[in-house]
């Protein structure tokens, strides 16, 4: 199993002077190539606390870097750059810049939880991955993932009505992610449905679209859920040192 290896020299750390003369010697171009210091001096010491405050990240300080999570990882087997052990370490030490470099792969965790069962210290690395993806999003380093957009549309409906109307979830998801509704698979699905001509089902579908049924007596539950969600979101943003309400 490959251990995560970072190339120590990044292109941006290679410096070359186009025109440089030192002591009368022309060292222009590749003669003046040098590597900028790799030593780190910039640390965000709040980072561990921030991840700890988000759901899933509670036990990150337990990690002792054995690498069981990375060894067990489904995604790591395909992409050696996906290394939960390494990211946990960066977070614990506050190497923010280094972590943000991997923002485009951190969210690829498939939540198989093999790491969860391998971890001898019960760190819950899968939860840490979730918390980290959430952290990157809240801090504005990454955009919302499509799955997050879907989850939001889905849960917003449940919160509002206590019910799910599949057609609406689908329409909202396509709209919010800027995709046309006429997806080939969706068209095929609808055509297949129409061809069988289930009159009663189609009538119910049509009625639901128009009347948006609600669970009886949902108002109280809705208020409680909204209150709770807002509480958690406010706490999350506060822990990360962000304003009460960020840009959606």
């Amino acid at each position: 199993m490959p251990i995560h290896e970072k190339s120590l020299i990044r292109p941006e750390n290679l410096v070359e002077h186009e025109n440089l003369v030192i002591d009368g010697v022309d060292v222009s171009g590749h003669w003046s190539t040098f590597i900028e210091s790799r030593a780190l001096s910039d640390y965000n010491e709040n980072m561990q606390d921030e991840i700890e405050a988000l759901a899933g990240g509670e036990h990150i300080s337990r990690c002792w870097q054995c690498g069981s999570c990375t060894n067990a990882c489904t995604v790591n087997a395909i992409n050696p750059d996906f290394n939960p052990r390494f990211w946990i370490y960066l977070i614990r030490l506050g190497m923010e810049e280094e972590l943000v470099r991997d923002k485009d792969i951190i969210w690829q965790c498939v939540s198989c939880n093999k790491c969860t069962y391998a971890c001898p210290r019960d760190v819950n690395p899968e939860g840490v991955m979730k918390a980290t993806a959430h952290w990157l999003e809240l801090k504005g380093h990454t955009k919302k993932k499509p799955s997050m957009v879907f989850d939001e549309a889905f849960s917003q409906q449940v919160f509002d009505t206590g019910k799910i109307e599949d057609g609406l979830v689908l329409r909202q998801f396509m709209k919010r992610t800027g995709q046309p509704l006429t997806q080939p698979w969706l068209v095929a699905l609808v055509m297949g449905l129409v061809r069988r001509f289930p009159v009663f089902y189609l009538m119910r579908l049509g009625l639901a679209t128009v009347f948006r049924p609600r669970t009886k007596g949902w108002i109280k539950a809705r208020a409680a859920i909204h209150e709770y969600v807002e509480e958690v979101e406010t706490a999350n943003r506060k822990a990360l040192g962000l304003d009460a309400k960020g840009a959606e």
């Binding site: 970072k6 190497m95 280094e98």
Partner: peptide
């Protein structure tokens, strides 16, 4: 404090 953080293969220099 100067050394090498062996887990990230990186020189460190920390106040």
């Amino acid at each position: 404090v100067k050394g090498e953080d062996t887990l990230v293969k990186r020189p460190i220099s920390i106040p």
